[in-house]
Computed example of a mutant assay.
Amino acid sequence: MSDVIYVATDRLMNLEETSGGIRSFTAIDTTGNGGTLFSIYLGPTNSTGSPLSMAKTPDGSVYIPIPDYNSVSACEVNKKELQKLQRGETLQLTSPLVDVRTFRIDGVPLAAATSPNGEFVYILSSGLQFISVIDANSQKIIGRIFNVGSFCRQLEVSPNGESLYALGSQGLQVIKIDESYLQRLSQEKSSSGADSAMISKISSLNAEIQKVDVAEVTKWTRALAVSQNGLLYLVNAASSTVTVLHANEPLAPATTIQVENGPVAIAVSRDGALVCTANRVAGTLSMIDAQTNDVTSISVGGDPQAVKISHDGRLAYTANYESASVSIVDLVEKKLLSTIDLDGHAAGLALLEDRASIG
């Protein structure tokens, strides 16, 4: 099962394109010759061509924002049936292969992230300046965090689950989270027996929000990632650099690293030893040694918009929008292993083996 990755795809090529396109949830098998295991239609979208944030909980549910539909789709895959698909067996389904639940989200949902323990999913809405909090077990919206900066587009959770990092054109914000309060609130919502869609007043969460003034944060700062060892990485598309911050209070700039042209996504290995950027303009993957800051770059598919690193740190995957493919890179040998073609433009990634958010 660790050889399955999930991809959010836009504008399926085998359908006539009118205005915008459609967004789908696709699973691909990276073993052997690779290939698509399934593709599920989620909804229409006009936000094609932009990197997409996805989030996955430990039980395998994947949360995918549908900005033009003002919604988030929670996709829960039947893992036993997925294994049958990998083995090439005929399915005899008594329950759906993929159970999709759609959450109506006010504003334009652009980013999703999960808490380290997998209990909560955070959805960032641009324009209305808040974050919706979803209980992953009950799949109910239990509250909102208001007064988040406008035009935020990326969201990450600290390894200890105590902070959210929201990135937007006005800077970086650190949002303090009290998970014990979220757990109590979740229990109250569950005991009420009311579905989240029927709750007229969603709780306003009293979160402490701190704006961080970092010179390197501009409207071209496109992505961020947090390492287990307390470093925060910011990607600047205009200068093609990665800014490294010490994720303490206050955040302290450590260094700036030059990568190839147009980075828009970043991932950090589980042990923090390796950092990878997907460079949209150059069509490359840059691999950064976190100890020495040495950079090695290799070509992947056209217009890579998302990158993820495998749990063991040996492989990286890029979602290539223009070439409608996923590239698999050997991080030890620093070479391209294979490219898997898709029937839709790849905009976001999630790995079945871990919980990391995708963007």
Results as ranks from 00 to 15, higher is better:
residue 250 P to D: 10
residue 207 A to L: 13
residue 26 T to D: 06
residue 30 T to A: 13
residue 346 A to F: 12
residue 171 G to V: 02
residue 64 I to G: 03
residue 180 S to H: 11
residue 21 G to I: 07
residue 334 K to L: 06
residue 177 I to W: 02
residue 310 S to K: 08
residue 132 S to Y: 02
residue 73 S to P: 04
residue 67 P to M: 11
residue 337 L to V: 13
residue 179 E to Q: 15
residue 118 G to P: 12
residue 142 I to Y: 12
residue 221 T to P: 09
residue 32 G to E: 12
residue 270 R to P: 02
residue 176 K to L: 10
residue 6 Y to L: 10
residue 192 S to E: 05
residue 76 E to Q: 15
residue 98 V to L: 08
residue 189 K to R: 15
residue 91 L to K: 01
residue 64 I to P: 04
residue 143 G to H: 07
residue 109 P to S: 05
residue 277 T to V: 00
residue 146 F to H: 12
residue 266 I to G: 14
residue 29 D to I: 07
residue 353 E to D: 13
residue 330 D to H: 15
residue 187 Q to I: 00
residue 187 Q to G: 04
residue 122 Y to D: 08
residue 52 L to R: 14
residue 20 G to H: 03
residue 196 S to M: 02
residue 227 S to Y: 03
residue 79 K to P: 01
residue 92 Q to W: 06
residue 7 V to M: 13
residue 3 D to E: 12
residue 163 S to I: 00
residue 190 S to G: 02
residue 137 N to I: 08
residue 99 D to C: 01
residue 160 N to Y: 10
residue 311 H to T: 04
residue 162 E to N: 10
residue 194 A to S: 08
residue 196 S to P: 01
residue 256 T to C: 03
residue 198 M to P: 00
residue 64 I to Q: 04
residue 194 A to P: 00
residue 86 Q to P: 05
residue 298 I to L: 15
residue 153 R to K: 13
residue 337 L to H: 10
residue 116 P to S: 04
residue 304 P to H: 05
residue 284 T to E: 06
residue 92 Q to C: 00
residue 331 L to Y: 10
residue 148 V to M: 11
residue 72 V to Y: 05
residue 99 D to V: 00
residue 129 Q to N: 15
residue 280 R to V: 00
residue 149 G to P: 03
residue 160 N to A: 09
residue 206 N to Y: 09
residue 203 S to F: 11
residue 202 I to E: 13
residue 222 R to I: 08
